[in-house]
């Protein structure tokens, strides 16, 4: 008797456990709030989120200082107030683009010394080959990295999602045409594709972002298409069709929202990848043009000084590393939070 009691107790509790899992599964399909809760419980994702938040904050300040102030300086009202590009940086510290008056090039970080002298706390991370402070240039390079990551990924995500959803929803020759097109794009090494794109249109950062965005379209369209193919068979899609909803609205309101979770995860990871790619492009001389600071270009400048002054190249490398890791940590956390099968 006793054994049978324990058995039934066990069964009960396991039943309850299953019920709990099922409830979470249903919750996760719905909720932003649930997803955020899952991320809060995941320390690595929180670290990623913290990194991204800090980086984004720096980027926003840098954007204000470098772009918005530059624009406002055109108006006499603001110009009279003293508003100019890098107003903020200049006031509190030092100008990130102009060569300083007392050029002390290639200084090491504050706590070390090298052939050019001992580091000073005026330039905590040292100076570059033209005597500009490395830390302030890193700060202003953040803006480029974050901007590039978000915008190029947004381009790829929006177009990739639309193409993949349309292909998956209609199937047949539309599917074939769109997906074979996307795969053709996939087949060309994307660095070559982006460089060819920029060679055709210009070396500007805008074209770098658009080019990288275009090369990531197939990643997103393949991803969402695989989900849409199963979602389109769901009864609620059939119900919407039976109720006379237009195909456009079915795709936008019913199909895409139900297929979007993997795209969101991929987008987060893709931001990191895009930052790397654009850093690589800047290194090759495409993208941000000097003297605007960007991490890839700082790396490029440091090439010749790698042995005598390794810090010069280490700092932008670390900046890229931290940012990309931040996005990857958040992406992994998001994946776990959105995937009901992963048991937290």
């Amino acid at each position: 008797m006793a054994t049978s009691d324990t058995q039934s107790d066990e069964m009960l509790s396991s039943d309850r456990g299953e019920g709990g899992v099922e409830e979470e599964e249903i919750e996760s399909r719905v909720g932003l709030s649930y997803t955020l809760l899952q991320i809060q419980r995941d320390p690595t994702a929180l670290v990623g989120l913290a990194i991204i938040t800090v980086m984004t904050f720096i980027a926003v300040v840098a954007y204000l200082d470098a772009v918005v102030f530059d624009y406002l300086a055109n108006y006499s009202f603001f110009a009279n107030l003293g508003v100019e590009q890098y107003w903020f940086a200049n006031t509190v510290w030092t100008h990130p683009e102009n060569d300083p008056a007392d050029v002390r090039a290639l200084l090491p970080p504050a706590w070390t010394e090298n052939a050019f002298g001992a580091g000073t706390w005026d330039h905590p991370l040292g100076t570059d080959h033209r005597g500009r402070d490395i830390l302030v240039r890193l700060f202003y390079g953040t803006r480029i990295a974050i901007q590039v990551g978000f915008i190029s990924t947004a381009i790829g995500m929006v177009f990739g999602t639309l193409i993949g959803a349309v292909a998956g929803y209609y199937g047949g020759w539309i599917d074939d045409a769109l997906m074979r097109g996307a795969e053709t794009l996939y087949a060309i090494p994307f660095l070559v594709l982006v460089i060819a794109f920029m060679a055709a249109f210009g070396r500007d950062l805008t074209y770098a972002m658009v080019g990288v965005g275009i090369t990531t379209i197939p990643v997103f369209s393949r991803l969402i298409r695989s989900r849409v193919v199963s979602v389109r068979e769901e009864d609620y899609i059939e119900a919407a069709r039976a109720a006379g909803v237009r195909d456009r609205n079915i795709i936008l309101r019913h199909v895409i929202p139900n297929s979007f979770a993997p795209v969101l995860v991929q987008a987060t990871l893709q931001i990191g990848v895009s930052i790397l790619i654009v850093a690589g492009l800047s290194f090759l001389g495409y993208g941000v043009q000097p003297p605007k600071p960007s991490w890839g270009q700082m790396l490029s400048n440091s090439r010749g000084y790698m042995l005598p002054d390794p810090w010069f190249s280490v700092w932008p490398g670390i900046a890229i590393l931290i940012t990309v890791v931040g996005f990857n940590l958040l992406g992994d956390g998001l994946r776990d939070a959105l995937d009901p099968r992963v048991n937290n």
């Binding site: 039976a242 019913h254 139900n258």
Partner: peptide
Amino acid sequence: RGREIAIIFQDPMESLNPVF
């Protein structure tokens, strides 16, 4: 569709869009 002839489907658990 919907206006003149409507359909009620078999499975009520699956016939509503879970994200709305």
